[in-house]
């Protein structure tokens, strides 16, 4: 039983993909823009986890360094995203993602 339960790197990969999928689905189902951002963050973090796992599997450290970049990028994204969002919400305080349909067709 223990052998079965042994945590192999594949588990982390699966976990990463699950988190990624949750993030992707979350972005699809949630209407609150802020929550949608968080879903994106979740996806990025899932990838981070995958990177680290691969790094471990390949016994190559470089995969872990990527994490640093990703974090920075994610942070930058959040800043910009929130900025845009705030600008929008200032105009339409109750706006959800589904209210943004002036542009279509």
């Amino acid at each position: 039983m223990l052998a079965i339960a042994e945590v192999t790197p594949a588990w982390y990969l699966v976990l990463g993909s699950l988190l990624f999928t949750i993030g992707a689905v979350g972005l699809r189902v949630r209407r609150n823009p802020l929550v949608m951002f968080m879903c994106v963050e979740l996806m990025l973090n899932a990838v981070t986890l995958t990177f680290v796992t691969f790094s471990r599997m390949l016994e190559d450290v470089h995969g872990q360094t990527v994490v640093v970049f990703v974090l920075v990028v994610a942070a930058a994204e959040v800043v910009v995203g929130l900025g845009i969002m705030v600008a929008l919400l200032r105009k339409e305080p109750e706006a959800t993602a589904d209210d943004l349909t002036v542009l279509k067709g």
């Binding site: 910009v80 929008l88 993602a97």
Partner: peptide, 10 residues
């Protein structure tokens, strides 16, 4: 413009 920004960003 805001809408475009949000959509593009998301």
């Amino acid at each position: 413009s805001q809408e475009a920004g949000v959509k593009y960003f998301v």
